[in-house]
């Protein structure tokens, strides 16, 4: 297996795609770092760009092997599982290298991406990000195992990244829908006022509450499934990490400024979906998220590896 890993790494090292990707990733890592240093929070777009670049690099390299050249190795006695896992581990090595370049660049540019966080939280966030990278990499390797053509596996991987971002927004919107819509009817002007339960006092008449089932609310098993998909989406994790990290990244002045927007008692303050945390302390909810994020990333990783290995075991080489 070590021989196959060396062979795969040789391919990465001698591929012009690696150097093009490295250049692009370094640029995006610098942007990512500067974005944080300028205290603008985490950039979801930089993360998206990095994963698009990685999806192309990994798919091109791995599918090149899975779509035919693996034949040369099978003939010489290498097992299919050995080939699959050597490709997977080599991809992990490349992704890890880029991950640590990101961290190193953050340190060099003194962004405080990790250093400003309390010890355990810093580790949890770094581990979370690392696992997201590995789970996405496993998905790209899975697509390479599934598709019979190099171009197809690249397209599938890139589409997956974009679909994940879009799906994150869609599922969030679906889950945000309240089960009941509450209307308030004024006896004076007969006006309906409803803004997701927030009442604006526009007249001086008496208001009567009318509670109606929200037709767009998804409940039962469908909700449970959507919720699991939402949580398994790597871009959900990124947005959550963004919320957790923001108070540590922003300056004291900025925190104070933002905190004054919402104060306890404000309607938006109690809504966890809307609320942005501007307090530098870890809540129970965040602790649960950090644990869940690792668990979901691990689940995506294990599922994609298992599916990829099963597909590759049965793959027909033309």
């Amino acid at each position: 297996m070590l021989k196959l890993i060396r062979s795969a790494l040789y391919r990465y090292m001698h591929s012009r795609f690696l150097y093009v990707s490295a250049a692009l990733l370094t640029v995006s890592a610098v942007i990512f770092a500067l974005y944080i240093r300028n205290r603008n929070g985490l950039s979801l777009y930089t993360f998206l760009a990095q994963n698009v670049i990685l999806s192309i690099l990994i798919s091109i390299t791995v599918s090149g092997e899975f779509c035919g050249c693996a034949k040369n190795k099978i003939i010489c006695g290498s097992g299919r599982m050995q080939i699959f896992f050597s490709e997977l581990l080599s991809a992990y090595i490349v992704v890890s290298a880029f991950f640590f370049i990101n961290i190193a660049l953050s340190a060099v540019l003194n962004t405080g991406f990790v250093s400003r966080l309390p010890g355990l939280l810093a580790f949890e966030v770094a581990a979370g990000f690392y696992l997201i990278n590995l789970s996405l990499c496993s998905v790209f390797v899975f697509f390479s195992a599934v598709s019979g053509r190099k171009v197809l596996s690249v397209v599938l991987s890139v589409i997956f990244v974009f679909v994940s971002v879009i799906a994150n927004g869609i599922t969030e919107d679906l889950l945000r829908q309240p089960e009941y819509l509450i209307f308030y009817v004024s006896d004076k002007e007969n006006e309906h006022i409803s803004e997701n339960g927030i009442i604006y006092e526009q007249d001086s008449g008496n208001l009567t509450e009318i509670k109606q089932k929200n037709p767009e609310y998804i409940g039962g098993a469908a909700r449970a499934i959507i919720l699991q998909l939402y949580k398994a989406n790597p871009f959900y994790d990124i947005t959550q990490y963004q919320n957790i990290l923001t108070p540590y990244i922003y300056s004291d002045e900025k925190i104070e400024e933002l905190s004054s927007v919402y104060s306890p008692g404000d309607p938006g303050y109690d809504n966890p979906t809307y609320r942005m945390r501007f307090v530098r302390e870890e809540t129970e909810e965040e602790q649960r998220f950090l644990y869940e994020a690792l668990l979901y990333s691990l689940a995506v990783l294990v599922l994609s590896i298992t599916a990829g290995a099963l597909v590759f075991q049965k793959k027909k080489f033309n």
């Binding site: 021989k3 196959l4 060396r6 062979s7 040789y10 391919r11 001698h14 591929s15 012009r16 795609f17 090149g64 035919g68 050249c69 034949k71 040369n72 190795k73 003939i75 010489c76 006695g77 290498s78 033309n318």
Partner: peptide, 30 residues
């Protein structure tokens, strides 16, 4: 099987690599 070499149906090559690199990849795998 390590004592076998083969070209079945069509040559399986890495198109973005030189001839030398293609041979080295196979040598590393062996």
């Amino acid at each position: 099987r390590k004592r076998i070499g083969a070209m079945i149906e069509k040559p399986m090559l890495y198109p973005d690599m030189t001839a030398k690199e293609n041979l080295r990849i196979q040598a590393e795998a062996l």
